[in-house]
Structures are given as structure tokens and as C-alpha cells.
């Protein structure tokens, strides 16, 4: 017998307590292998205004391209202390910051590899469903052959590309709507 899915509802503006208790801003403690990265994600509504009540979660592979999860059974190293999960609500500037390592490449089911990417969930008042997107690293040569980017209209691919600023921080604005609307995925 099939059970009906529990429908999604908005996180609302007043999430707190245990939700904020498991904030993980620093994903990679000292000793974790890989290239250190700083991410700065901002959330904007259709008018470009910041969404100050939004919560962002990220999920990523380690620098070897291995997910810390029983479904990933490949013989690649797991790094002690690196789960690959982050959760932060945005600050008053609408920005969520994470410190991590650049994820390695993970396989594509039909063969080949995906470009390095970070999986992102966004929650906010006014979002009845979790919206999911990905962060790719602008300038990574693997992007040209990434099978997910190839699913996206070339005119909209840039909405998934984080760009490095002059301080070395990877910045990605997430636009929930409007002319710069980010590409979201049904995952």
C-alpha cells in the first residue's frame, strides 16, 4: 500500500532553537584534506531585495569526491571530522557564509564525472517548498563537460556559477525570482 507524502510547508520567519543549534558554518576542521574555500551566498527576492529570514543548507562531497554516506560505497578516502553538511541562516545583509574544502568530482550515472559542485537547499518565509540548487565554481575546466550544466539553458547557466572576489571568497547570489532567477532543480 502506498502512503501519501506529507506535504511541505514554509519554514516561516520564526525558526529557532534546535534548528539553529545545529548550525554548521565550518565544515572542514583543521587537518581535513583539500583546497580551503570560503562561500558567501546571498538570497534575493524577485525585486532584488534581500531575504533576511532565509536559511541555507549545503551538502557536498569531500576533496576526494566521496560523500560521507552509506550510499557512496566507492573506495575513496573519508576525512575524519568532515561530514559535508552546513546550515546557516543569512545575516542582516542576506548573506550566509561557509568555510569548507572544494569538493572533488563525483560520478554521473551514465559514466563520466560531474564538475565540482555544492548542493544547496534554501528555506524562507514565503517559500512553501524547499528550493534546491547547485553551486559550481566559475572557471573550473570541468564545468564545460558537466552533464547537469548541460541540462540548463546556456543563458541561465551563470546563475549557478560562484565567482571569486578579490578577497578569494566564492560569491553566489541566489535569486528566488525576477529577471536573474536562479536555476532550481527537482532533485
Amino acid at each position: 500500500m502506498s502512503h501519501g507524502l506529507t506535504p511541505s510547508q514554509t519554514i516561516g520567519p520564526f525558526y529557532f532553537g534546535t534548528v539553529t543549534k545545529v548550525y554548521h558554518q565550518q565544515l572542514a576542521p583543521p587537518g581535513v584534506a583539500g583546497e580551503r574555500i570560503e562561500l558567501a551566498l546571498t538570497v534575493h527576492d524577485a525585486d532584488g531585495a534581500i531575504v533576511p529570514d532565509s536559511l541555507i543548507e549545503i551538502w557536498q562531497a569531500n576533496s576526494h569526491g566521496r560523500y560521507n554516506h552509506p550510499e557512496d560505497r566507492r573506495n575513496l578516502p573519508l576525512d575524519a571530522g568532515f561530514e559535508g553538511y552546513g546550515r546557516v541562516s543569512v545575516d542582516t545583509q542576506g548573506c550566509a557564509r561557509f568555510s569548507s574544502v572544494k569538493p572533488g568530482r563525483v560520478p554521473w550515472p551514465e559514466g563520466g564525472l560531474q564538475a565540482p559542485h555544492v548542493n544547496i537547499s534554501v528555506f524562507a518565509r514565503g517559500l512553501l517548498n524547499r528550493v534546491a540548487t547547485r553551486l559550481y565554481f566559475d572557471g573550473d575546466p570541468a564545468n564545460a563537460e558537466d552533464p547537469v550544466l548541460k541540462l540548463v539553458d546556456p543563458a541561465r547557466r551563470a546563475t549557478l556559477l560562484a565567482r571569486k572576489d578579490d578577497k578569494g571568497v566564492w560569491r553566489l547570489p541566489i535569486h528566488l525570482g525576477g529577471p536573474k532567477e536562479t536555476v532550481f532543480f527537482d532533485c
Partner: peptide, 13 residues
């Protein structure tokens, strides 16, 4: 939802 709901269909992954 009016200013925050994405309008483009989500791409099926």
C-alpha cells in the same frame, strides 16, 4: 509567495 516563489519550472535532475 508572490515575490519569493520561483516562476521558472525546476529542472528535473
Amino acid at each position: 509567495t508572490v515575490s519569493r516563489a520561483p516562476r521558472q519550472p525546476a529542472i528535473v535532475l
